[in-house]
Simulated assay, not measured.
Amino acid sequence: MSTLTVRELRADTWDDFERVLGGNGGSRGCWCMHWRLSIAEFMAGRGEGNRQAMRELAAGERAPGVVVYDGGEPAAWCALGPREWYPRLERSPMLARVDDEPVCAVTCVLIRRGHRGAGLLRRVLDAVCDYASGAGYAIVEGYPIEPRPGRRAGSDSVMTGVAGAFLDAGFTEVARHRKDRPIMRRTL
């Protein structure tokens, strides 16, 4: 099993980010802007607009997420940062704030095609938590999907991760406002 490494999304990792997300920028031109914009802004920028918005975030003072490498190969993307960075998440009744604790919100975890189905998600979450701890966070919070038994989650919902992998990575459920969407935390 190779060691995973984590690098912030910046100009020098942008090409690797694009390799992980693919030509569509993840699902339907998202470019990981889903939780950052209103639905109207998101739809107006779908595709190239969202791509450019993420590129601007990557050039900012704080990285909008990390690229995770498996044996030097870009294998995953994780959007993370203070929950306040994600206005759409803040407005979501389904994923309403649990308390006033400052958390590092993990809003997207995307495993690159060709790397899926090998149990990488749990290891990615461990690596991301190590990164978050080094960045000074005490709590990482995720919003995974819990697919119904015998069903696979669709690409639009699985972008937040799968609950079983979060459990395997040491997260615990702290709230559930909808049957298939737990809010999970890991204390660092």
Rank of each mutant, 00 (worst) to 15 (best):
M1S: 00
S2P: 06
T3W: 11
L4P: 03
W14C: 09
L21T: 07
S27C: 08
W31M: 06
E41C: 08
M43P: 03
A44F: 02
G45V: 05
R51A: 12
R51D: 14
A53T: 08
A58G: 11
A59C: 14
A59D: 11
P64A: 11
P64T: 04
V66Q: 12
V67A: 04
V68D: 10
Y69W: 11
E73T: 01
P74V: 08
A76G: 10
A76C: 06
W77G: 02
C78M: 08
A79M: 00
A79F: 01
W85Y: 15
W85H: 13
R88A: 08
L89V: 03
R91D: 13
S92F: 13
P93T: 07
V98P: 01
V98F: 00
V98Y: 00
V98T: 03
E101S: 11
H115Y: 07
R116L: 10
G117W: 00
V124K: 09
C129P: 00
A132Q: 06
S133G: 14
A135Q: 15
I139N: 08
I139M: 11
V140G: 01
V140N: 03
Y143E: 02
E146D: 15
R151M: 15
S155V: 05
D156F: 04
M159V: 14
G161V: 12
F171S: 02
F171R: 06
H177D: 02
R178D: 04
D180E: 14
